[in-house]
Design a protein around this nucleic acid. Structure first.
Lengths: 104, 104
DNA sequence: GGCAAGTGCTACAAAATACGTAGCAAAAAT
DNA sequence: ATTTTTGCTACGTATTTTGTAGCACTTGCC
């Protein structure tokens, strides 16, 4: 067992964070949160906003995000962020600026 | 064309952000950034940190993240975040706290 | 030198995930 | 009552990820 540049990490990633990163590391997951940032959208409007997503995947993401308590479905209104979801959005908001300045 | 709850979004998501969210919406992408937060790690150490990732996917992510200018490979040291990558990490850092308090 | 261990990386079949299109049943609007 | 819009499902195809094996190359060591 060589004592090389790196051995075992002293600070390992927590299970909660790993879980979060795994959930968000699915296509459209972050995008859906993003599209709900300012207003509630119904299924089809949300699908239009995420141009290219298939209905099956949208349905899957909505379920997962609902299970995570990030979004909620209001009958007659559509889907919208919960308090927890809005908090997450506020966290990822600076990402927009970052993307603008680094991905041009 | 009914003027329902929502018509067309007035503020649409920019291409850059869509691109960023698409890149990060791949498995292990955010996790790899996260694991490199404090120190450079070589291929195998990085793979050990991301328990469960396959070498092929790790290789693919490293390529993509390198193309995005987020990480760089230093011969004899391994992979580490670039200035741009560290900036991104600082942005997503609050995510750790969020995950701890919301995903228990 | 020679040899063992560690390195980054590739190959490839199987499983999981996403895409694309069509369309249904229920609610709402006309 | 008929049309429109709604959320959602089905299903075959394409893409992505997994899991395992191993290759070629460098490094440290006797």
């Amino acid at each position: 067992m060589a004592k090389g540049i790196q051995t075992i990490r002293e600070t390992q990633t927590s299970a909660s964070l790993a879980q979060a990163l795994d959930h968000f590391g699915r296509r459209w997951a972050l995008r859906v949160i993003w599209e709900l940032r300012s207003e509630a959208l119904n299924f089809r409007a949300l699908r239009a906003a995420c141009a290219g997503i298939s209905p099956a995947v949208m349905q899957a993401r909505l379920h997962q995000l609902r299970d995570l308590g990030l979004i909620e479905q209001i009958p007659g209104l559509g889907y919208r962020l919960t308090a927890s979801g809005e908090q997450l959005f506020r966290i990822m908001a600076p990402l927009a600026e970052w993307a603008e300045s680094h991905l041009k």
